[in-house]
Each structure stands twice: as C-alpha cells, then as structure tokens.
C-alpha cells in the first residue's frame, strides 16, 4: 500500500473528497518552491503533484510552460526535483507526492535508475503525460513493479471501447481530464464531468480525480461534488508567476482545498 492508497483510505473513512495541488518543482526558485511545497499539507492539500520541468511540455498551456522555463533557467534538473521531494519528506512522511511530467528526462536517466532514485526520494506515484497504455512496457509496468503508482489520464476522447485499456494498468487513482485541451485553458463544467466520472467508475474501484480547467474555490467544490476530488494547477502556478508571497499563495490554495472539502 502506497501513501496514495493510504490517503484515499483515510479520506473514505472520514467521508471527505480529495484536493490535489500541482506546483512546478523549482518555480520560481528552489528555496521558494520548497517552502510552498512544505506549506501545502497545512493548506489542506491531500496529494501533491510535483511538476518535473521539461523544455517541451506539449500538453500544457502557457502558464505551466512558463513555470517550467523559469525552473529550468534557475538550474532545476531531475536531480534537484528529487532533492526537493527528499527535503519535503524530512518533515512529512504521509502526504503523497506524485511526480508529473514528460518521459524524456526519465528515459534519459534510465528507467531503472530513475525508479530507484524516485522511490528513495519519497515519490509515491507518476503521471507521465506522453505515455499512453500502448507504451506501458516503457515505464508503467516497471514503476508498478518498483512499488510506485502509475496514474493514468482518462479524457473526453477515451471512448467506451478504449476505457478498459486505459484503466487496466492504472493504480493509485484515475485522473480524468475534464476538457479536450491543454492545462489552464477552458473551464471545466461539472454538468459534463459528472456522467463521465460515473462512466469511469463503472469500470474501476479506483478513486477518480478531475483536473484541467479548475480555477476557483467554487469550481473546485462543484467538481469534487461529482468526483472523488479535484486538481488545481495553473491557477496556483499563476499566483507564483505573479510573484505573490508564499503565505498568499498558500492562502489561495487553502480556499481551493476548502472548496473541495466542502463538497
């Protein structure tokens, strides 16, 4: 049982929905980023999605692209991203960390080396955007074997015929992408999302968390009402981009978490 499984068991017992927050590792710099990440659990975040910076984030909108560029320009690397997780783990051994990013930096490191290092650094799961089920042999299966969750994205284009394939090797939770588009773009509509979550839940016992296009506490609540939780990324990163102090960023995160938890 990973920290992710344990977290959902607790949430289930207390009847609460999950709130997942995404931040880019090393944005705007290593120290500030670490301070923000350390503050997330206190702001009500149940699961941390830690972005691994990449030069070519094809599934991301301008906000997260720019965050990645800021991090890379500040000298962020895969090693430093793992270091950030390790430092977070010094004070927190329960909040799950999911690393989210693209395959090339991991492939470049070598899959087995990466998995060893990620596990050691206290990473619990992976969301790798450019690895669909067709490429499961690359990282998904080795990751599960190494004891890390591999969280798959399901999307509005994942039809009924394809859904079982998407769910087959998923673990931890299912991340439903609420819109066809990139991160931080169109607004998610809970009326559209509800039936889709039900469709996915018919095929799996895993929790279904919904992200992309959630920007406000109200949306966070509306989405959490029809799913097992909500994810916010770009709206938080946007606060960091604007240079807001850490306490203000965390206050904003808390409002989003409260939204989800009130569902």
């Amino acid at each position: 049982m990973t920290r992710i499984d344990a977290k959902f068991a607790t949430l289930r017992d207390t009847g609460k929905k999950a709130f997942v927050a995404y931040v880019m590792a090393g944005d705007p710099d290593f120290e500030t980023s670490l301070e923000i990440v350390k503050g997330l659990p206190g702001a009500g975040v149940d699961i941390i999605e830690l972005g691994l910076p990449f030069t070519d984030p094809m599934a991301d909108g301008p906000t997260i692209q720019l965050a990645g560029q800021r991090a890379l320009e500040g000298g962020m690397t895969l090693n430093r991203t793992l270091e950030l997780a390790r430092k977070f783990r010094e004070d927190d051994d329960t909040t799950p960390i999911v690393m989210m990013g693209y395959y090339n930096p991991i492939y470049s490191r070598g899959v087995s080396t990466f998995l060893e290092q990620a596990k050691e650094a206290g990473i619990d799961g992976l969301i790798i955007v450019d690895l669909p089920p067709e490429e499961d042999d690359e990282l998904c299966l080795p990751a599960q074997k190494a004891g890390l969750n591999f969280i798959r994205l399901a999307t509005p284009t994942t039809d009924d015929a394809r859904l079982p394939k998407v769910l087959e090797n998923t673990s931890g939770f299912v991340y439903y992408v609420s819109i066809t588009g990139i991160t931080g773009s169109a607004e998610a509509q809970s009326a559209d999302v509800g039936p889709e979550v039900a469709r996915i839940k018919a095929g799996t016992n895993l929790p279904v968390i919904v992200g992309f296009g959630i920007k406000t506490p109200e949306q966070s609540r509306a989405i959490a009402e029809v799913a097992d939780g909500s994810v916010v990324g770009s709206a938080i990163v946007d606060q960091i981009e604007k240079g807001k102090p850490v306490n203000e960023v965390l206050a904003f995160v808390k409002s989003l978490a409260d939204g989800a938890h009130s569902a």
Partner: peptide
C-alpha cells in the same frame, strides 16, 4: 504493429490524442 522501427518510433502522445 506498434509503430516501431527497431526501438525507434512508437506512439508517445497524451491520451486525448491517442484515439485520434
């Protein structure tokens, strides 16, 4: 059938694009 030339090629895209 997996779009590979030896180890090269493949389908490294997001799930949204996969059905397309």
């Amino acid at each position: 059938e997996n779009g590979r030339f030896g180890k090269f090629g493949g389908r490294f895209v997001s799930e949204t694009l996969m059905p397309l």
